[in-house]
Structures are given as C-alpha cells and as structure tokens.
Design a protein around this nucleic acid. Sequence first.
DNA 1: CACCTCTCTGAAAGTAAGTTTCATCCGTGG
DNA 2: CCACGGATGAAACTTACTTTCAGAGAGGTG
Lengths: 304, 304
Amino acid sequence: MAKTTKVSATNESSGLIVHISGLLPSLSPAEQRVARLVVADPADAARRTITDLATAAETSEATVIRFCRSVGMEGYPQLRIRLAAEAARRIEPPDARVVGGDIPPGADLAQIIATIAFNDARAVEETAEQLDPAVCEQVVDAINGAGRVDIYGAAASGFVASDFQQKLHRIGRTAFAWPDVHLALTSAALLGKGDVAIGISHSGTTSDVIEVLQQARARGATTVALTNFPRSPITEVADFVLTTAARETTYRSGAMASRLAQLTVVDCLFVGVAARNRSKARRALEVTAEAVQTHRVGAARRSK
Amino acid sequence: MAKTTKVSATNESSGLIVHISGLLPSLSPAEQRVARLVVADPADAARRTITDLATAAETSEATVIRFCRSVGMEGYPQLRIRLAAEAARRIEPPDARVVGGDIPPGADLAQIIATIAFNDARAVEETAEQLDPAVCEQVVDAINGAGRVDIYGAAASGFVASDFQQKLHRIGRTAFAWPDVHLALTSAALLGKGDVAIGISHSGTTSDVIEVLQQARARGATTVALTNFPRSPITEVADFVLTTAARETTYRSGAMASRLAQLTVVDCLFVGVAARNRSKARRALEVTAEAVQTHRVGAARRSK
DNA sequence: CACCTCTCTGAAAGTAAGTTTCATCCGTGG
DNA sequence: CCACGGATGAAACTTACTTTCAGAGAGGTG
C-alpha cells in the first residue's frame, strides 16, 4: 500500500488542548498562529467565528480549517464545541467549603447559599448511600399491609410527619400524623397488630415521640424510627430503624439539612409503597390532582 | 410610586439547562419539543446542526431559532457552545437513572432510593446555582425590616410555609403561616406597608395563593413568590421572585424534589435574616432550645 | 355565528459561516 | 535556470443559520 495513514496517539476523547500544544511544532507557521490563540484562551476561541479567528491569527479561513484537520477535527464547528467543553471542564468546582462547618460571621448571601446547598445536597446523597434497601423493603411491606399508619414527629420533624401522612393519604392509605403528644398517645393506644407507627426525631431523643412509639409497640404495632443517630434512645423502641446522614451547621437547632434528609427517606418509602400498587396509586394520584385542578389558574405566560 | 421593578432570581450566567426546564411550560408546543430534546441530552444537542435538531424535534429551523431567543441566547451557535460547556461541566449522571425521568415499573427499592436521592440532590444544587444572591438580599432585607411576615402555601408547599414560619418565629420575628385561604385573606387584608407576604407554589398556578398575595400587595405589603416556574402567574403579583430548579419525576403531583428545593431557599433566607442580627438570633435560638430540653431524654448510647 | 385578532408555525428567501478549489508564492534541489 | 512541492489566501462554492412572510388555528367579541 502506497498510502500512509497518520495515526495520532492522543486519546481523542479528552485533552484536546494538550494534544494541540503537542502538535504545535509540527504545524505550519500560519497554523501555529491559530494554535497559539486556541491554546491561550480556548473559551474565547470557542466564542469566535471562523472568520474572526482567522483574522485574529492574521491568516485566512482556509488555514483555520486546515488547522482543524491537523488536530483531528472534522471542521470548525466541531472544534468549537470541543473547545467550549474543555474550557468548561477546566474551571474548577466551587471552592472548598467546610463540610458541616459553620457559616462564617462575615459571610455574604452568596456564600451562605453555597454552604447551605452544599450541605443539604450532601445530606441527601449520604443518606441515600447508607440507607439499607432491605430495611426499607420491610418498612414498605409493613406500611403496605397496615390497616393504619400513625406518624409522629415534633416541631420540624412534625412537618415531615405531616408531609408523609398527606402523601400516603393521596394514594389511598389510611394514615395520620399527630403533632400533639396527647392526641398521639390516644391514637397509639388504639393501634394493633399489623398497624404501623413511625416516629421521626432528628436527635432521637425527643421524649414525646419515644413515649408514643413505645405505647404503639406495646399495643402490637410495628414501630419504625427515623433519626439521624443510630444509637439514640428512639431506636430502642423501634422494630426498624432508618437513619439520615446529616451533619448540621451551627444553626442546627433548626436541623435544616436533616429535614431534607428525612424527606428524602419519606419520598423513598412513599414511592416504594406506591410502586407496590402502581396502577391503583396512579389512579389515586390522578383523582386527587383533578380535585385541586379548579384551584389552578391558566398555564404560564408565553414570552412576548 | 406606581413603578414596580420586578426582580427575578434566575441567574443568566449559569445553569442554562435548569433555566430551560424552568421556562419549559411557558414555551410554545413546538419550542417545548425542542427544549425537551435539549434538556434530555444537552451534549447530543450540541453536536447537532440546527437542521438536524429541528428535524429531530419535528419542527422547522425557525422554531429552533425562536427557542434560542426564548431562553435568552443570541442564536443557535451560541446555544450550541453553551450546551457543550454545560454538558462537560455536568458530572455524568449515574447512567441507569434518567434525570428527572420516571422510575421504571420493575425498579427495586435500591434503584428507587438512588433515583430519588439523585434528583433531590440535583434539585438542591441547581436551585442554589440559579438563585440570585442580590434578590435574596433584598428579600432578606424586607423580612428583616418587616413588622410582620405572612407566609402562604397550599398542600405540600403549606408545610414549607409552616417550616419557614416556625424558623422565623424561633429567632424572634413575627411570622404567620396560613394554610387556609380564608384565614389567609383575612390576614393579608391587615398587612400594610413594610410588611412582607411570601407565597409558595411549585407550579405557580395555585389560585388561592395568588389571590392572597395579590390582596397583600394591594395593601402595600412587599410580596415575594417562591416557585419553580419563572413565568407562571404567581410571578405577576410578586415584587420579588425566587425560583427553585426541580425537574420532577412522574409522581410529581407530590412535587417531591421541589419541596426540598423550596426548603433550601427557605433555609438560605432564614440564615440570611439570622445573620443580620447574629447575637440576638443566637440568643433566641438558645432560649428556644432550652425550652424543649426537658422533652429530651439522655444522650445517645455508647457503643456496647 | 361571523368576524376579528393574535399567536404559532413552517416555507421560502436571504445572509452569514464554513469548506473547497485553485492559482500563486516561495524556497529547494537538480 | 528550471522544475517541484509545500504553504498560503482569494474566490467560488456549499452548508448552516436567520429573517420574512403568509397561512392556520385558537380564542375572544360584537
């Protein structure tokens, strides 16, 4: 064979800029001028049109095309998007934030937002990682087979409890959320075998919730604890323990990240239950969605 | 002053894909087809030519251009390189999961957990990315200087409203959450200049919330909307618009990820307000923490 | 119910960007 | 001095992108 195919050793899928600087000496003078511009500021090059870049390199469009081919690209548009992609990757992910750390006194809102979001997202991810699907499965089964589901939580965890209650209700399950200890105790006393009681407490030390869960257990109900601390008192009165993984910042009394982690767990259980009776759940959701339809106004505005 | 400057929280400089999903409902049908393709696989879209993309979306090139303009780009090439850049920055979504997609019928719990956590975490992160600190700042200032803060939300958003109310209350701010329309309207009627009304609605179309916000505005209160859709009706009655960035999965009626995103925004505002009066807020938190201390049992068990 | 208006839409015309072709230039070696 | 061959840009050409315009259809109005 007379033809010689040139094969580049550089992996095409990444490091285009490195590749180009490697090839630089082997390029013709005019192409080198183009290459230098590209290497110097890939993001800027990506923004330019071919004519623009050619002018900047004091050469013609034809040379730019030749340059594209020389570095293994099909054409200029291809080069452009590769450059844009590489330039974007180059920018480093947001600076190191202290995980679970405090928010510094002088922090501006942008920092606050970044810190909170970072910790919130981490809490959600880490919670999911350490959640045991087998335990979830058992909890889902228990809820699925339950005649009634009671959910207890105080303060912030109370909202999570209500959220879960409302979700289960929407797919046609009998569920109650009791933010009040006395009502909760009364309700727990009426639970029996096959029923499920879920206690939510970030610290795992909220005596009201523990007490109620204990009561429910005594009546034969299956008890589930949702807490951030796997060895906290609440776990002693629970058949199943689900843990969140939130590392709180200073204003932790509000237990900000833990709420999100709790909600994530709630969502998982909810979808788990719904998935057990897919069609029935879907129908129930549609019906409830329709029910509020008249309380919605027209769709979003179109742009003018 | 008759002039009301509306400030939206969508930050143009990053998170284009998030931005697009937020605008999705406000786009025309043909543009929506394009948007969906783009959101589903930005990297792939970046590789396509305009004709190609138009064909794939079963529309004309003209519509694609209109779509580019609708989302704030100058033209198609600009969109292309932005998409390429974003796709590159984005960490590979763990392949098995469709971002914002449905949960497959046969999914086991482990998959469900992974999918939910992934989408939840993404919603939080993307929400933070596109939140405009300047708008947050103004909202924080408004809350900080308010005589009273009213927070409105229905159903799931109602829990978020209550959560926010409770948080503000804990740092000594007068805040109310009204899940009931009539009580809410009554309360809104009593608001005045300097007061703040916050309406929370994922879809931005909940007529109850809109109505109440409008009432509050008519009374001279500063109005704030928290929604996922920057062009939804609720934004028309709000002085400040804060947007979340959740792409919901099928069981979206529950608006799972959006709740978390809303809570993240709430947390940011809360910490922002608390930071304004750091020592006072800290003292208030300590006092309230002490108040529930007797309702806590001993610390976590040591390892056995 | 006819009429109007307004938005959405794609066809087609128009413009700009990218690509190919080709003649020229210039250095090199016979 | 004359081939020869690579490098280069002008110009022709093709493809991609953008604008314009008229028709379709939804929704409102007298």
